[in-house]
Structure formats: C-alpha cells, structure tokens
Simulated scan of single mutants.
Amino acid sequence: MTADAMSRDEIDGALRDTGAGVLSLTDGAETYAVPESFGYDGDAVYFQFMNGADSDKMHFVETTEVATLTAFTQDPARSVIVRGGLCPVADADEPIAMRAIAANATIPTVDVSLDTNPDELTFAFYQLCPDERSGRAFGVSPPVPGA
C-alpha cells in the first residue's frame, strides 16, 4: 500500500467532500472523541453542537486548547487531520457557519440524545481555526517486477 501526502487543494477538497469526522477533545487528563458533522469554507471548520445541560462534550469543548478533527473516506482511501483552537462562533458570523454547514456537512441520521427531551437541548456554533492541516491518500502498491 502506498501513502502519499495530499496538497492543500486536495485537503480542502477532501474536507468539503467528507462533511463528517471524529472530533477529539481533552480536559488535560482524559480524551473525548465524538463523531461530528462539519462544514468547511476553506478557512475554518464549523460545527453546530447540540447538547443538554450536563453535556460531556461541552465540558471537553470548554477545556480543550487544541482540538483535532480526523476526516476519512474509504473509496478513495484518504484521511485528513486538522488541528487548532476551537471557539464559539460570534453571533455576527453565524451566517458564515450556517452556509458552510449547509454546503457540505453530512447530517447524521441518529438521535443525538436518547435521554434528553429535544426541548431541553441547546444549539451552539463553534469553529476550529486550523493551525495544522495534513492529509494522506492511500493506494495499492504497484507489483514488484520478478516477485
């Protein structure tokens, strides 16, 4: 199997095409990884978090200094990692987040909370401002002559 580094344009394309991944957070002692839909506008990754009053996710969001998003596909096989600060989207910038999410997020088909009435859930937009982006595209190694 081969693994080739992706260019910035390929990384941007993969983030726009994928629309969902695993967001990894930490409180300094424990890690918390959660599947999340996201939107990407070429500059920032946007999330719309839905949570209840005692949300583990929001605890970790508030204590994480550097978040990591891993997005991947199997066909074609590729993975992208984005690392950076995670912060609330300012009210004035919510339309930017909404457009990015509407353009390319993969909306989940599962219930977010089995124990919480939907009326008790709150929504908040967050953005991950990338400090680092990396990507790998995977392929089949060519046959070795004479092997």
Results as ranks from 00 to 15, higher is better:
residue 5 A to G: 05
residue 7 S to I: 01
residue 7 S to C: 07
residue 9 D to S: 13
residue 12 D to H: 15
residue 12 D to K: 08
residue 15 L to E: 01
residue 16 R to D: 00
residue 18 T to H: 02
residue 19 G to Q: 06
residue 25 L to C: 01
residue 26 T to G: 01
residue 27 D to H: 07
residue 34 V to E: 02
residue 35 P to A: 05
residue 37 S to K: 04
residue 38 F to A: 01
residue 42 G to W: 12
residue 42 G to S: 10
residue 45 V to L: 12
residue 47 F to V: 05
residue 47 F to M: 11
residue 50 M to Y: 09
residue 50 M to L: 10
residue 50 M to H: 13
residue 50 M to Q: 15
residue 51 N to F: 15
residue 51 N to R: 10
residue 52 G to T: 10
residue 53 A to C: 02
residue 53 A to D: 13
residue 53 A to S: 08
residue 55 S to Q: 04
residue 56 D to G: 00
residue 56 D to H: 15
residue 59 H to D: 11
residue 63 T to Q: 15
residue 63 T to E: 14
residue 65 E to C: 00
residue 65 E to M: 04
residue 68 T to Q: 10
residue 71 A to G: 04
residue 72 F to Q: 14
residue 74 Q to S: 15
residue 75 D to P: 01
residue 77 A to F: 00
residue 83 R to F: 03
residue 84 G to W: 07
residue 87 C to T: 15
residue 87 C to R: 14
residue 89 V to G: 09
residue 92 A to P: 02
residue 95 P to R: 08
residue 103 A to N: 12
residue 105 A to S: 14
residue 105 A to I: 00
residue 108 P to Q: 06
residue 112 V to W: 13
residue 115 D to P: 00
residue 120 E to F: 06
residue 121 L to N: 08
residue 124 A to W: 05
residue 124 A to Y: 07
residue 129 C to L: 14
residue 132 E to L: 09
residue 137 A to M: 11
residue 141 S to H: 10
residue 145 P to T: 04
residue 146 G to H: 05
residue 147 A to T: 03
